[in-house]
Write a protein that binds this DNA or RNA. Structure first.
Length: 423
RNA sequence: GGUGAGGUGGAUGAGUGGCUGAAAUCAACGGUUUGCUAAACCGUCGUACGGGUAAUAGCCUGUACCGAGGGUUCGAAUCCCUCCCUCACCGCCA
């Protein structure tokens, strides 16, 4: 949610930034300004009437005590007239407020100054690359073939039990998931992140707080009987820990990490890009989240990017870091860095992490604030990133490390997996 | 799922339909006293949205808010209805 004061005071800037994000309905900015003016006018009018009837009600109380019955009755009649006016103004005000907020929640976050221009993934900026792309043997195959060969995941039975895109991990495939998530969590907690296990379903308030509603509502599984959403990422429940909370300045930054299953409908996806583990409806991910002081958030974002980079490096995977252009960023983000690992057999980059600073956008919606030393209350900044999403990491690990009889695992995983290779 | 109790400011906890935006205590903050700490004493101490003035500090002022939403009334924290949540016991259950 954008700050109404910013829209009021600097509409030109807001419009320019929205255009940078390739947002089409720039006219929303002017519509909000008009509604805001009207809203304030109505509130002023209503407050005046309410004030009069409050004063009259008090006067009646006094008159009753003094036994001046007739004067009291006369006053009552007066207030009766005001009630009509009050009702009318209240209805108008509520309607205008509703209209204003309906539009306001559709406005995405403004991109930060460093966000490159552009409207398609090709215009994302490569910040840096690392690792070495392996040269695979002539008979190298994509991960879905390796998965079959080593019997790691049974997609067909997963489809029978639930539907396509719900993998059934099995044997060493299941153990590898456990090894990776344990390793990621240990890596994060060693860096000062507190570990959480959050609920996997959330209510509408939480989904709204992090910006999934209304923007991504169709992407979430919804349980109508209980009005709950399956989480698309641990970001939603974990960030919402601090919804409607006023923190102390000394509490910041708050660093949290959580493993969760993630559920995404991915409606409309099809084709070769969704084969195997490239795109699934249920997957495992470890997330890192920070609640930060506004002055520190961009520095902390850099630290989070560096943190994820070390994690990817430790897996010995070739990777690159992208700074997303305005048109490719998420609804709630002010700036986003994507991590991609090289999938050698598919000859393509796979996104495994997205690290973003949401600045005050989520905090405004969630009413997450802190009291500064001076006693002033202001909203925090929120940040999060994957550290890491498992399926595509598995895909890259399998493909890049295939060597005839087995698949070699990076050193950091040996103790977690209980073996240096899969065979 | 059933029954009972309850939801009041950072915390504990009063509150008879008007004098209660809300007692009291604690915590917190500022100050006095003090060699330092403690104690004592004095003061401050909710949020949101408006309006005025002013330097985006501050000050003055209006409205709303005592779980949420409705209703009764000239007037509701207080009465009525619906819903939500918490706790306890029972039932069911990994």
């Amino acid at each position: 949610m954008l700050d109404i004061k910013l829209i009021r005071e600097n509409p030109a800037f807001v419009k320019e930034r929205l255009a940078h994000k390739q947002f089409k309905q720039i006219e929303f900015v002017d519509e909000i300004s008009v509604l805001d003016t009207e809203r304030r006018r109505l509130q002023q009018e209503l407050d005046t009437v309410l004030n009069q009837s409050n004063l009259a009600a008090k006067a009646i109380g006094g008159l009753m005590k003094e036994g001046k019955k007739e004067e009291a009755e006369a006053k009552k009649a007066e207030v009766g007239v005001m009630k009509e006016k009050e009702k009318e103004l209240k209805e108008k005000l509520t309607a205008v407020e509703q209209q204003q907020s309906d539009i306001a929640i559709q406005l995405p976050n403004l991109p930060a100054a460093a966000v490159p221009a552009g409207n398609s993934p090709e215009q994302n900026e490569v910040v840096r690359e690392g690792g070495i792309k392996p040269t695979l043997p002539a008979d190298a195959v994509p991960h879905w073939d390796l998965i079959k060969k080593f019997d790691l995941i049974d997609f067909e039975t997963g489809a029978k039990i639930t539907g396509s895109g719900f993998p059934l991990y099995k044997g060493k495939g299941a153990k590898l998931q456990r090894a990776l998530s344990s390793y990621f969590l240990d890596f994060n907690t060693a860096a000062g992140y507190t570990e959480y296990i959050p609920p996997y379903m959330v209510n509408a308030d939480s989904a709204y707080g992090t910006g999934q509603i209304p923007d991504k509502e169709g992407q979430m599984y919804f349980m109508p009987a209980d009005e709950l959403y399956m989480i698309p990422t641990a970001e939603v429940p974990v960030t919402n820990i601090y919804r409607d909370v006023v923190l102390k300045e000394s509490d910041l930054p708050i660093k949290m990490t959580a493993f969760s299953q993630c559920f995404r409908r991915e409606a409309g996806s099809f084709g070769a890009n969704v084969r195997g583990l490239n795109r699934v409806h249920q997957f495992e991910k470890v997330e890192i989240i920070q609640i930060a002081h506004p002055d520190k958030s961009h520095q902390l974002l850099d630290e989070m990017v560096a943190h994820v980079e070390r994690l990817v490096q430790s897996l010995e995977l070739p990777y690159r870091i992208l700074r997303l252009c305005g048109g490719d960023m998420g609804f709630a983000s002010a700036i986003t860095y994507d991590f991609e690992v090289w999938s050698a057999a598919q000859q393509r980059w796979l996104e495994v992490s997205s690290v973003s600073n949401f600045e005050s956008f989520q905090a405004n919606r969630m009413k997450c604030r802190f009291k500064s030393e001076g006693g002033k209350t202001q909203v925090v900044h929120t940040l999060n990133g994957s550290s890491l999403a498992l399926p595509r990491i598995v895909a890259a690990l399998l493909e890049n490390n295939q060597a005839g009889q087995g698949i070699h695992l990076p050193k950091v995983l040996h103790s977690y997996f209980g073996s240096p290779f899969i065979d």
